[in-house]
Simulated scan of single mutants.
Amino acid sequence: MLFKKLLALSAVGIFTLGLTACAPEVGSEAWCKQMKEKPSGDWSSNEAADYAKHCVFK
């Protein structure tokens, strides 16, 4: 029973790490392009500030 829980928890952790590894680094050219394609209404306040800092005011 404990082994199954540990195995499931490990699988979830590996899956989560795999998803985050695919996201471009904030401020990179790929991230700026991704944000430009994303509707600005869907941006968080942090994303908007990072976009202005890294993509507009380089």
Rank of each mutant, 00 (worst) to 15 (best):
V26Y: 01
E29Q: 14
D42K: 11
Q34H: 02
S45E: 15
V12P: 00
W31R: 06
C32K: 03
W43R: 05
E47W: 01
G18E: 08
S28L: 03
V56T: 05
I14R: 01
V26C: 07
V56M: 03
P24G: 14
Y51V: 02
L19M: 15
T20L: 06
V12D: 02
F3P: 10
F15C: 10
S28P: 04
F15Y: 10
D50S: 11
W43M: 02
L7G: 07
F3L: 12
V12Q: 02
L17G: 15
G41C: 02
K58D: 10
H54F: 13
D50N: 13
A23T: 14
A23Q: 15
G18T: 06
L9K: 09
F57E: 11
A23I: 10
W31N: 15
M1S: 13
A48L: 05
A48D: 14
G13C: 11
I14S: 06
E37W: 00
L17P: 05
S44N: 12
L2A: 13
D42R: 06
S28A: 08
A11V: 02
T16V: 15
P39Y: 02
K5D: 08
A52F: 08
E29R: 10
E29T: 07
M35S: 08
W31Y: 10
A49W: 03
H54Y: 15
N46R: 09
A30E: 13
A49V: 07
L19C: 14
T16S: 03
V56Y: 01
H54P: 04
I14V: 15
K36V: 08
S10Y: 06
S44L: 03
G27Q: 07
V12N: 00
L6G: 09
L9M: 07
Q34M: 02
W43L: 01
F15W: 09
L2G: 12
K36N: 09
A8Q: 08
S44P: 11
E25T: 04
K38Y: 04
E37D: 12
E37A: 11
M35L: 02
K5I: 10
F57N: 14
L19E: 14
G27V: 00
A48Y: 03
K5W: 05
K4L: 13
G27H: 05
P39K: 07
A49M: 07
F3Q: 15
A8P: 00
V56H: 04
K58W: 06
L6A: 06
S44F: 01
E25L: 03
K33W: 00
L9V: 10
L17F: 11
C32N: 07
P24D: 13
Q34P: 03
S45F: 10
L7F: 03
L17V: 15
A48I: 05
P24C: 09
D50I: 00
A49I: 10
K38C: 04
L6I: 10
K5R: 14
N46V: 08
G13E: 06
T20V: 12
V12I: 15
G13N: 12
S40D: 13
F3S: 15
K58L: 01
S40C: 03
I14K: 05
G41I: 03
C32W: 04
K33G: 06
A23S: 14
E29V: 04
A49H: 11
